[in-house]
Computed example of a mutant assay.
Amino acid sequence: MTRPFRSVLYIPGSKARALEKARELAADAIIFDLEDAVAPDEKAAARETLARFLEEVDYAPRYRIVRINGFDTEWGRADAAAFAGHAGADAVLVPKVNGPADLDAVAAVAGAKPLWAMMETAAGMLNAAAIAGHGRLEGMVMGTNDLAKELGCRFRADRLPLQAGLGLCLLAARAHGRVIVDGVYNAFKDEAGLAAECAQGRDMGFDGKTLIHPAQLEICNAAFAPSAEEVDLARRQIAAFNAAQAEGQGVAVLDGRIVENLHVVTAQAVLAKAAAIDAQRIAVGAD
């Protein structure tokens, strides 16, 4: 089964209360943030606090990603070294990746730890394929706030100004088999807006979405999970195709539509994702 990444929640590495609460939340993954969420004079202390929590607190089965500071800062290398061999960190998230060289630099310090890339610069968009092809890369995270700032674009609910970058990164991730999650939705009290943006991201093909507040988890988890109707259709497509093959036919017809092998592959992926989500839900004790 493929691990789900429907909801990827940012948690400040400096906030002990938030770190404690995180083990109770129904997030598929957590980004423990040492970068944007931590003030400069708290960076070193936050690194120590997070390292201690990841040693003492069991966040399983949530995937644990540590976002370090950039190597152009005084904290980045120490962050990467601190979590290189840390058993409580599953991966290191590198901010503002402009090209493969940025991943090379972190890989040299982070040991064998899998790397994730923040995709949030214009250069990163143009180099998305090369970044996705890096041998140490496991996943990509869209940093839509920073990207919008760099582009100088206006906010639109349909995110039209960001579509080129989102699409380039999606193509790159799929070409190289990487996980890719969408950027955050800033208005955490706007449930309708969040649901709409989740639906857009899911329709585009993202595996999930990054979140800034626990209140966003339920909507996000629902949006990026196969619906009951999708699961039912997947099962019926597989059954119809198997029946057609038993009769010597290469394709089947279901609900007035052709079902070919490619549809069966997609249907099997839907069922595998549903099964993985059910297993995750049971493991975290969610309803």
Rank of each mutant, 00 (worst) to 15 (best):
T2K: 15
L9M: 11
L9Q: 10
G13C: 09
L19I: 11
E20A: 13
E24G: 08
L25C: 06
L25Y: 12
D28Q: 13
A29R: 02
I30W: 08
D33I: 06
P40D: 15
D41A: 08
K43G: 02
R47Q: 09
L50H: 10
R52K: 14
L54Q: 03
E55V: 09
Y59K: 04
Y59V: 03
A60C: 06
I68P: 00
G76A: 07
R77W: 07
R77S: 09
A81M: 12
A82N: 01
A82W: 01
A82V: 00
L93C: 05
D102C: 07
P114N: 14
W116C: 04
E120C: 05
T121W: 04
A123C: 03
A129W: 11
I131T: 10
L137I: 12
L137M: 04
N145H: 12
E150L: 09
A157K: 14
A164E: 12
L166R: 14
G167L: 11
A173V: 12
R178Y: 03
V179Y: 14
D182Y: 14
G183M: 13
K189H: 12
E191Y: 06
L194F: 05
C198R: 00
G201M: 03
M204R: 15
F206Q: 05
K209T: 05
K209G: 01
I212C: 04
P214S: 11
A222Y: 01
E229Y: 08
E229P: 04
V231F: 01
D232A: 13
A234I: 10
R236A: 05
I238C: 02
A239P: 00
A240Y: 09
A243D: 13
A246F: 05
A246P: 01
E247L: 11
G248N: 12
Q249D: 06
D255K: 15
R257A: 08
V265G: 01
T266S: 08
A267R: 02
K273F: 02
I277W: 01
D287Q: 12
